[in-house]
């Protein structure tokens, strides 16, 4: 109708400016903690994916029994003469798979319930009660019972760990989702006719996605520990290698105190992976936090 009116542009305090994806990654790796943790995670993923292509599946009986680490067996050998490095490499695949899948399951359930609780007051009462109950339960004994009943397998481990890990995610997403739900722009969306589903998926979920990413990393780290623990207790899949099973074998053959390499290397793998995932999670959180922009 008429020409645009020029208007005084005032400088505004820039609120949570959504950084572009590349920008975010660059900021993530500028700190050594970010770059290092990412490199370690990448190394594990590559080992899990491609390691078994280069290392034979450990099995059968070898001649070099209970050898300490050497040039021919970097991580030493066990009482059957199998190469511990090969076991760790093959175990990486199972440990990562269970960790990732269980974490995925926990994240999906946890995020859905957390968002639902944040948005709906009525549902929230129930969700909070169930979450608090789950968090107060002694998890390890419960996981042991359920796994034992369901029969040990990779699938069982994944489902059991996943089903017992969502409450932390729910609590995190719910409390942060509630902050977003109280934002004026949620009223803005409702005034334009957005219903509950659209508000949760379009307005609240994108705002908590960074937390979901952090949760994925932390939950996966916890899931790897749970997997190792359950496998060490003999509740892992007897037909596939995992880090917990290597240690279980050491314990079963009574060499736990002598063949230190048989427990050290899988333990180191667990420690390194959990540490890297945790550091990466924390680092990611820092990059997303506008208050810590200069970090």
């Amino acid at each position: 109708m008429s020409a645009p009116i020029p208007e005084t542009t005032q400088a505004v305090a820039v609120p949570t400016a959504p950084p572009s994806r590349m920008d975010g990654l660059r900021r993530f790796v500028t700190k050594p903690t970010g770059a290092l943790s990412l490199a370690v995670l990448l190394l594990f993923v590559l080992t899990g994916l491609f390691g078994p292509l280069f290392v034979d599946r450990p099995g059968g009986l070898g001649t070099d029994i209970l050898q300490a680490p050497s040039a021919s067996h970097w991580f030493g050998t066990d009482d059957l003469g199998q190469d511990v490095l090969a076991q760790v490499v093959w175990g990486t695949r199972v440990s990562l798979t269970v960790g990732a899948a269980a974490s995925g399951l926990a994240i999906v359930i946890g995020t859905a319930l957390g968002l639902f609780g944040a948005y709906s007051r009525r549902a929230d009462a129930w969700i909070t009660t169930v979450t608090d109950l789950m968090l107060s339960l002694p998890l390890l004994p419960l996981m042991i019972i359920v796994t034992a009943i369901a029969g040990p397998s990779i699938a069982t481990l994944t489902v059991v760990i996943g089903l017992f890990s969502w409450p932390e995610v729910t609590r995190l997403i719910r409390s942060n989702g509630m902050v977003v739900v109280a934002m004026p722009y949620i009223d803005g969306a409702r005034a334009l006719g957005a219903g509950g589903w659209r508000i949760v998926t379009r307005e609240v979920l994108p705002a908590v996605v960074p937390l979901v990413v952090v949760s994925v990393l932390l939950t996966a780290a916890r899931a790897v520990i749970s997997e190792a623990g359950l496998s060490f207790l003999g509740l892992g899949d007897p037909d596939s290698w995992s880090w917990g099973r290597i240690m279980l074998n050491a314990q079963r053959s009574g060499v736990l105190s002598t063949a230190w390499w048989q427990t050290l290397f899988p333990s180191l793998a667990i420690l390194l992976l959990v540490l890297a995932a945790t550091v990466a999670g924390v680092r990611f959180n820092d990059t997303r936090d506008p208050r810590l922009k200069d970090r």
Partner: peptide
């Protein structure tokens, strides 16, 4: 609304 900055989704 009164405050457009907070009534629009920042992301």
């Amino acid at each position: 609304f009164q405050d457009a900055l907070s009534a629009l989704n920042p992301v």
